[in-house]
Amino acid sequence: MIKIKRDHLMNNEVIELVSSHLQGMNLHSPPESIHALNIENLKQRDITFWSVWEDSQLAGCGALKELDEHHGEIKSMRTATAHLRKGIAKELLQYIINEAQKRGYRRLSLETGSASAFEPARKLYTSFGFYECEPFSTYKEDPYSVFMTKKLND
């Protein structure tokens, strides 16, 4: 059974998963094009972080950053390797979309990589109604980034 819970980034397993996420970004993007957040940045007040558990095993994580009262950004979506292709990312993405709607956001956006390694993520987001857009918030045009957004129901 999958359980999604708000996480305060104190658990070593969660810290290792976030570190693994950052290492993965370093493999596929130059340093100036990596927008993934480290542990300290994920603890900022405008970010809510969740961990996903399958029984007692850490299965994934993800976060929602408030850009303004009507716009949120998905951050640090990651599925643990042992839990790939089990629907963890789909369940967490739906959870984050639901949370954004509860908060009254009108739009939910994200930045992901343009390399082929990020294609499964881009396909997942597209399947949930996200589409490519211009850079948002403080992002700049970057050949290593793909910006996506989804309008939410009022």
Rank of each mutant, 00 (worst) to 15 (best):
V18T: 12
S20D: 13
Q23E: 15
Q23L: 14
N26T: 12
N26P: 01
S29R: 14
P30S: 00
P31Q: 10
I34S: 00
H35P: 00
A36W: 11
N38G: 09
E40L: 03
N41V: 03
N41C: 07
L42N: 06
Q44A: 15
R45N: 15
F49M: 01
F49H: 04
S51P: 13
W53C: 12
E54C: 14
D55V: 15
S56G: 07
Q57N: 15
Q57M: 13
Q57S: 14
C61I: 02
C61Y: 05
C61T: 07
K65Y: 11
K65S: 13
E66R: 05
E66W: 01
L67Y: 02
D68L: 00
D68H: 00
D68Q: 02
E69I: 09
E73C: 04
M77Q: 02
M77N: 01
R78C: 01
T79F: 07
T79P: 02
A82Q: 15
G87Q: 11
K90F: 03
K90Q: 03
K90S: 08
L92F: 13
L92P: 12
N98W: 07
E99Y: 09
A100R: 04
G104A: 01
G104Y: 05
Y105P: 08
Y105T: 08
R106Q: 14
R107Y: 03
R107G: 00
R107P: 00
L108R: 08
T112K: 07
G113Y: 02
S114A: 11
A115G: 09
A117E: 10
F118Q: 04
F118A: 03
R122H: 03
K123F: 04
K123I: 08
L124C: 01
L124Q: 00
S127C: 05
G129T: 05
Y131G: 03
C133V: 11
E134R: 11
E134D: 13
E134I: 08
F136W: 06
S137E: 06
Y139K: 00
Y139S: 08
